[in-house]
Structures are given as C-alpha cells and as structure tokens.
C-alpha cells in the first residue's frame, strides 16, 4: 500500500511527459506540413525576421565579445608557461567557432527570443486571439508558428557567425594586449581552423534555431490562463530550449565527428 502511491505518481508523471511529447510532435509536424504545403507570407515573416535577427544582434555581439576575451584571458597564462603564447589564437578561435559561439548564441537566443515567443503567443492564447484566428477560418500554426520558425531557422546561423566573429576579435584584443605576435597569432589560428569547423558550428546552430522556435511556440500555445500561466510558459520555453540545445549539441557533435572521420583521417594540429 505504502509503495503504491509513489509508483502511481511516477507512472502519472511519465504518462504526462509522453503525452506532452506526443502533442509536441503533432504540433511540430503540423508546422512542417504548412511550410511545405503553403509557404508563409512575406508580410508575416518580415516582422519576425526583424524581431529575431536585428533585435538579437546587440546581445549576440555582447556575448561573443566577452566569451572571446575571457577565454583568451584564462588560456594565456598556460600557453605562456609552455612558451607557445602565439598558439593562443588557435585554441580561442577553435573553441569559439566550433562550440562556444553556436551554443552561447543559441542560449542567448533561447532567453531573448524563445522567452518572448512563448510569452507573446501565451498572451495571444489567454486573450483569445488564437481562438479569433481559428474563428476566422485561419490556421494559427500557419500564421503564428511558421513565420517565427522560419525566422529562427534562417537567422540563427547568421547570428552565430556574428557571435563567432566578435568572439575572435575579442580574443585577439586580449592577445594583443598581452603582446602576442599578431602574425603568428593569426597564422596558427588559420592552420588550426578548417572550413569544416566553421561549417560544424553553423550546422549546429540551424538545429538550435529550429528547436528554440518549436519549443517556445509550443509552450506559448500550451500556456495556461493568467499572468502566471504566461510567465510559466516563458520560463519553461527557456529551460526546455536550453536543455534541447545541450542534448542536440552532444548528438550533432557525435554525428559530425563520425562523418569527419569517415571522410578524412583525423590529425591534431598540435601534434603536427
């Protein structure tokens, strides 16, 4: 008797999670169906491009710059001890391009855009604007989700490139401040970073953008009544998007490393 209750609670929680995953899958499938059967209209997409792209730029630049600078600051003493300070650029820039740029850009966008998407759609739901759309014979997923999804999908890779660029500049500014030779700094950076690395970072960001948009829109559509419901939807959108970014990152890195190894033999630039 005593153990039945906790087991029932676990079972109920599991059933809720599975149900939620099923609803999310149907929601995502519906968004994809609209993209491929009836492409969104420019007048719906344009404001979302502005919201996701232009308005996210300051926070992305800020994040990228500080990540690059901090990484260079923390790495420099070790490289100097080894007498290879000019290799600082290789480590900082490779870290920024392959991992920190895409992931931190994704996290910042999950916070800024994802939260706003969930709160905006949640407010539309509780003020019956989504019902009004349906009442007028319009499909809410096509009108509200598809433009937001496409804006995230198209612009997060560009924002990631901005984040990478600013991070690289930030790292160089610190290295320059320490007196690292500029020519050698960039020469080692260039030898360490391949086009594949840049591609890998940008490739990941496409998936991060899709996950952020779908999760945030879904949470907004599932928002409960009242200010608390909308607030909770925004919070959950960020938390779940953040977790999704980390999980996707792991699997995409595994996939890309396997693909790289299959295509080219792996060698370390530091051992060559």
């Amino acid at each position: 008797m005593g153990i039945a209750r906790p087991i029932a609670n676990v079972g109920r929680f599991a059933a809720e999670q599975v149900g939620d995953l099923g609803r999310f899958t149907v929601f995502s499938a519906s968004a994809f169906r609209w993209i491929f059967t009836d492409f969104t209209r420019w007048r719906l997409l344009r404001p979302q491009l502005y919201e996701v792209g232009v308005r996210s730029l300051p926070v992305i630049i800020f994040t990228g710059a500080f990540v690059g600078m901090v990484l260079a600051l923390q790495s420099y003493p070790q490289f100097e001890l080894l007498g290879r300070a000019s290799w600082l650029g290789a480590v900082v820039n490779l870290s920024v391009v392959k991992e920190l740029g895409p992931v931190l850009a994704g996290v910042m966008i999950a916070g800024r855009v994802g939260g706003a998407l969930a709160a905006g759609l949640g407010t539309m739901k509780v003020t019956e604007q989504i019902d009004a759309l349906r009442a007028m014979g319009a499909e809410p997923i096509r009108h509200l989700v598809v433009p937001r999804f496409l804006a995230c999908l198209l612009l997060i890779p560009f924002l990631t490139v901005y984040c990478d660029f600013v991070g690289i500049v930030g790292g160089y500014v610190v290295a320059w401040g320490y007196g690292v030779d500029t020519h050698e700094y960039w020469m080692h950076s260039a030898s360490a970073i391949e086009n594949w690395d840049i591609f890998a970072g940008v490739f990941k960001s496409v998936f991060f953008g899709a996950a952020i948009a779908l999760i945030s829109c879904y949470k907004g559509f599932q928002s409960r009544q009242g200010a608390e419901g909308v607030g909770r939807a925004a919070t959950e959108a960020f938390v779940v998007s953040f977790m999704a970014i980390l999980i996707l990152d792991l699997f995409i890195v595994m996939f890309l490393q396997g693909l790289y190894d299959a295509l080219w033999a792996r060698t370390s630039v530091f051992l060559s």
Partner: peptide
C-alpha cells in the same frame, strides 16, 4: 469575443 481579441 468578450475581450474583443483584436490582434495586438
């Protein structure tokens, strides 16, 4: 709609 539900 009760609250008009105008698209804001």
């Amino acid at each position: 709609f009760q609250g008009s539900a105008l698209f804001d």
